[in-house]
Design a protein around this nucleic acid. Structure first.
Length: 111
DNA sequence: CACCTGACATAAT
DNA sequence: AATTATGCCAGGT
């Protein structure tokens, strides 16, 4: 069930948008979706999980709308999530005690 | 808080 | 080619 195909146009848009997220900041699936004119955050997530260039293409800088860590590598908890958290922390993103991202680390595309 | 529904690309059949 | 199922969600009920 893995894909061995070149990236689609949709995926290119998603990956391209990822590079606009500054280091130490995160955005949400919805925000990213708005930027590329897609109203389905789930579609975004699907593209991200298939990101063949992680973490050069920073799919780890995308979190869920409630500013929780979101998913990584197709999982919503476990080892991959742990790595995602460390990646973000390494970039300067700070986490609240409940595991949510500090609001000042949030990045909106229309800034 | 636990569903239900909406939106949409891709995989599978 | 067409239909169904699934998914690093979000928002409403």
């Amino acid at each position: 069930m893995e894909l061995h195909r070149p990236p689609t146009e949709f995926e290119r848009k998603v990956f391209d948008a990822l590079h606009l997220i500054p280091r130490g900041k995160v955005t949400t699936y919805s925000q990213l979706g708005k930027y590329i004119n897609c109203r389905s955050p789930r579609a975004i997530g699907q593209a991200l999980k298939r990101n063949p260039f992680a973490p050069e293409t920073p799919c780890h800088r995308v979190v869920s709308a409630d500013l929780k860590i979101g998913g990584f590598g197709g999982q919503r908890d476990g080892e991959p999530i742990d790595r995602k958290r460390r990646l973000l922390e390494g970039e300067g993103v700070t986490f609240a005690p409940d595991g949510s991202i500090a609001p000042e680390c949030y990045y909106s595309f229309d800034e």
